[in-house]
Amino acid sequence: MGGKVTCTLGEVKNRADLIVYWGGNPAECHPRHFTKYTLTQKGKFIPKGRKDRTMILVDIRETPSAKAADIFLQVRPNKDFEMLSILRALIKGQRVHAERVAETGLTLEQLTDFAERMKKARFGVLFFGMGLSMTRGKHMNSAALLSLAAELNAFTKFVAMPMRGHGNVTGGDVIMRWTTGYPFGVNLSRGYPRFNPGEFSTVDLLLRGDNDAALILGADPGATMPQPAIDHLARIPTIVLDPKVTHTSRLSRVHITTAATGISAPGTVYRMDEIPLPLRPPLKSPYPTDEEVVRRIYKAVAKKPMWLPPEEPAAKG
């Protein structure tokens, strides 16, 4: 993510005295986040561990993570962007309208206290989850939160980090950025990368019926995507690589069983703070790894004639 003001979880552990979770429920979705990286650990500049840190949770409902928090702020659903905008005004000492504040479901005192705590922190961090980035406002919400973090650096050190979900999604972003320049939804059909979320993102492509074949690996869209997108996957030749026969495998033309990442397949995965970590698989699988199968498909395609149309002969004269 370009221009993001961020850090590693090691820095959070050693330095952060104000930890804000926004639209995420780490107690249930990232169970060791508190104990391994953020709240309870003692750090180099946080000698007393939990006692030296303040945790604020912002969410639309009181999840089990609220128990761990010092302050829980219940924002009204779909008012995250408004709340972020008010906070951005408050940290700069600007006046805010009472009715705008009322909209968020919080009081001016609560928001002012929050803004002051962020300004006074020695090292603050804003972790944001899907409750922020996948609800009304979507990436505008994330952008507002990232701006808040950036602007707080006029007063103190402040960073932001998305709470990434399953497995190696972070690695996916990093690898695509490295190889194509864009983090996801990259169209290579013209032989060079094009990026346009909403046009080249999977659900949009499938809903429009743009794809005429699909290779699915490390995911089970047949269990998670909107039904019309799944229907399109069932219509076209779909190929699945997975350690199990999944929902998607059942509607596919070709399924290949592969070794499970980190269990019986070695390699590298990225942590949510973009730190690459090696896997230490304890088991030996009877199946090939995804890496090996993708490479074999690559070789099998490479044997066929090039798909590009032959070059037009240059005009003479």
Binding site: N211, D212, L215, G218, P266, Y270, T289
Partner: peptide, 17 residues
Amino acid sequence: AHLPLVYGLSNVTCETQ
């Protein structure tokens, strides 16, 4: 295929990606 889709990449290694 004219426009094949390669999708997922979550539960796989960076080497696979």
